[in-house]
Amino acid sequence: MDIEKRVKKVLMKNALKDIDPKELNIDSPLIEYGVGLDSVATLELVVALEEEFQIRIDESEITPETFESIKSISSHISQRI
């Protein structure tokens, strides 16, 4: 599975449980769905991404730009694996 699909899977399982997967494409602004507005929820998403990709993501890497969309998260992760 490519990175974007895996990121989407993590998002749907953690931060966006009540959203229809068809509604979300790789460029959808995640802030519209509340992602990034709540630091605990964001941290939960980060640990889920760490688990999925087996990488260490530091709190300092959690920026609005990184978490803008599935595409931006995937791009950040692809530089780390």
Binding site: G34, L37, D38
Partner: peptide
């Protein structure tokens, strides 16, 4: 009315942990 505008409205006025996670 969208979830985002409600969340942003709350964010300006109350501590983050009080902001509804589910709307």
């Amino acid at each position: 009315t969208g979830k985002k505008e409600i969340l942003e409205f709350c964010r300006d006025q109350i501590a983050e942990y009080k902001i509804p996670r589910i709307i």
